[in-house]
Simulated assay, not measured.
Amino acid sequence: MRRNGLILLGIALLLGVALYQNSDNGTLSWFSSSDKQQPSLSATALAKSGLEPGAEAPSFTLTGLDGKTYHVGGKRDKPLLVNFWASWCDPCKEEAPDLVRMADKYSQSLDVYSVNVTMYDKLSKAKEFVQQYKMTFPVLLDEKEAAYRKYNGVAFPTNVLIDRNGVIQDIIIGTLSAEQLEQKIKDLVKL
């Protein structure tokens, strides 16, 4: 019995060290929703993701909950906010009302595609999430994680702001305050 306890303690210690080493400044900010004033990803981690502002947005095509097909990549009529999320993600729940408000407020000048990474979720839970937060913009299903991989997803939520020319203007991993998110959207639609 004592041996099992020591083994479990060792595993817990190794897990703690691994999580600490993979965090920003020793904090697991994307697991905590208390720090909503700043993006929860350091420049170093963003560089590791392989995408950066100024790069062409990787293209993908996914089916939405409405049965329609949606495409990301290349030139478009309006700028686009692509939101990667999962229904079990607490920061995604925290962010959802802000996204809904921004999508409604900027509907004439911005498209919002909400991408549920269904491979890490359950379709029934995703549908409940969409109903709970009254999401009226397209909700795409990334059932094989293909789009999330193209964007080198590292955490939920991830928001990618793409201009009319299909160029990434900003990548937000984690949550921002509603004011900060709106300012980024205002900057995007001005381009």
Rank of each mutant, 00 (worst) to 15 (best):
M1G: 12
R3C: 00
N4Y: 13
L6T: 07
G10E: 04
I11D: 09
I11R: 12
L13R: 03
L13C: 13
L14Y: 06
L15H: 04
A18P: 00
Q21H: 08
T27M: 02
S29N: 08
W30Q: 03
W30M: 08
F31Q: 10
S34R: 12
S34F: 07
S34H: 10
K36S: 06
K36T: 03
Q37L: 12
P39W: 07
L41R: 05
L41F: 09
S42K: 09
A43G: 05
L46A: 08
K48W: 02
K48M: 09
S49Q: 12
L51C: 06
E52N: 05
A55K: 15
E56D: 12
E56A: 15
E56M: 12
P58A: 10
F60E: 03
F60M: 07
G64L: 05
G67H: 02
T69L: 06
T69G: 00
Y70D: 06
Y70Q: 04
G73Y: 12
G74K: 13
G74D: 12
K75H: 13
K75Q: 15
R76N: 06
V82K: 03
N83M: 02
S87E: 07
S87C: 08
C89A: 09
D90T: 14
P91A: 09
P91V: 11
P91K: 03
E94L: 15
E95Y: 06
P97D: 11
P97H: 07
D98A: 15
D98W: 12
L99C: 10
L99G: 10
V100P: 00
V100D: 05
R101S: 11
M102N: 07
A103F: 06
K105A: 08
Q108W: 00
Q108P: 00
Q108I: 00
V112Q: 01
V112S: 00
V112R: 02
V112N: 01
V112G: 00
V115T: 02
T118F: 00
T118M: 04
Y120C: 00
Y120I: 01
Y120V: 02
K122N: 11
K122Y: 11
K122G: 03
L123S: 04
L123R: 11
K125I: 01
K127F: 06
E128Q: 14
Y133R: 03
F137K: 04
V139Q: 07
L141Y: 03
E143V: 05
E143L: 00
E143R: 08
E145N: 14
A146E: 14
A147G: 04
N152P: 04
V154G: 13
V154S: 12
A155D: 10
T158K: 09
N159F: 02
L161D: 01
R164D: 05
R164M: 07
N165W: 07
N165I: 06
N165R: 14
G166Q: 11
G166Y: 12
V167K: 14
Q169T: 12
G174Y: 09
T175G: 12
Q180V: 05
L181A: 13
E182H: 09
K184L: 08
I185A: 04
D187C: 05
D187N: 14
L188W: 13
V189G: 01
V189Y: 03
L191W: 04
L191N: 15
